Amino acid sequence: MKLPAGHQQVMPYLILKHAEGFFDFTARVFGAKEHHRSYKDGNKELMHGEISIGGSIIMFGQSSADWGTDNAGLFIYVDDADATFKKALEEGATEVMPVTDQSYGRSGGVKDPFGNTWWITSV
């Protein structure tokens, strides 16, 4: 099987309100790198975006009348769950579960401004 460069076999695909802002949020909180952007209607509306976090690609697009919002729950390993959790809250996320020690690591949950839940964990 041949895959496009940088893609893994299975990738989440999110349909978001304010999808353009998702680039900035993920870059500031998780260090995401832009992998791709495609626009429609003369560069006015994001049609398709891709970010890379630690080598994993997340694809997403803008919701519309044809494509309703389709959010996700995402589990992410980070170096410092407490610091990343705090940064997510500073960037507009809301707390779902405070960061606590779990059997699998230090973990907490936030809902980002776009409706996705992130389970932020360090081991």
Rank of each mutant, 00 (worst) to 15 (best):
F75M: 08
G92C: 03
T26K: 04
T26H: 10
Y77P: 07
T69M: 13
T84W: 06
Y39V: 15
T100A: 12
G61I: 00
K86A: 14
D112A: 02
Q102I: 11
Y104K: 03
G6F: 05
L16V: 02
K33G: 07
Q102L: 14
K2F: 08
G61V: 00
V78F: 05
G49S: 04
V29N: 09
L14M: 13
S122W: 08
V96C: 03
A32L: 06
V123Y: 14
W119M: 09
K33P: 00
T69D: 13
P12Y: 13
I57A: 08
L74S: 08
A83T: 03
Y13W: 12
M11A: 13
G49N: 01
K2Y: 11
E34D: 11
F23R: 03
T94C: 04
E90K: 06
D82V: 11
T26A: 08
I120K: 05
K17Q: 12
S56T: 13
H7W: 10
I120C: 01
G31I: 09
E20Y: 11
M97D: 12
E50G: 12
K86T: 15
Y77E: 14
T26C: 11
G73I: 12
E45H: 03
I120D: 04
R28H: 10
K44E: 13
Q102D: 06
V123W: 15
I58S: 11
S107C: 14
F25Q: 08
P113D: 06
D24K: 12
H36M: 14
A83C: 01
I15A: 10
T121L: 05
S56M: 05
F60C: 10
V29G: 07
A81N: 01
G31W: 11
N116C: 08
H18M: 12
Y13M: 15
Y13H: 15
Y104C: 09
F23A: 04
S107T: 15
W118V: 01
H36T: 07
L16C: 01
A83G: 01
V123L: 13
M1T: 10
G55M: 07
M59K: 11
A65S: 14
T100V: 14
L89S: 09
V110H: 02
H36C: 07
N116F: 10
G73A: 09
H35L: 11
G55N: 13
A88T: 04
N116Q: 04
A83M: 02
F23K: 07
A5Y: 14
V110R: 04
G6Q: 04
Q62D: 04
D82N: 09
G21D: 11
D101P: 11
Y39L: 15
A27G: 05
E95F: 00
H18D: 15
D79K: 14
A83R: 09
F114S: 05
I57F: 04
A32V: 08
Y77H: 14
L3G: 07
F23C: 03
W67D: 15
D79V: 05
G92S: 06
N71P: 12
F114R: 00
T26E: 00
S122H: 07
Y39P: 12
H36S: 11
R37Q: 06
A19F: 04
Y77G: 09
M59R: 09
N116K: 02
V123I: 10
M47I: 04
Q9D: 09
F85V: 00
G73R: 10
D41W: 11
D112K: 06
V96G: 11
G21P: 05
G109M: 12
T121H: 05
H18C: 09
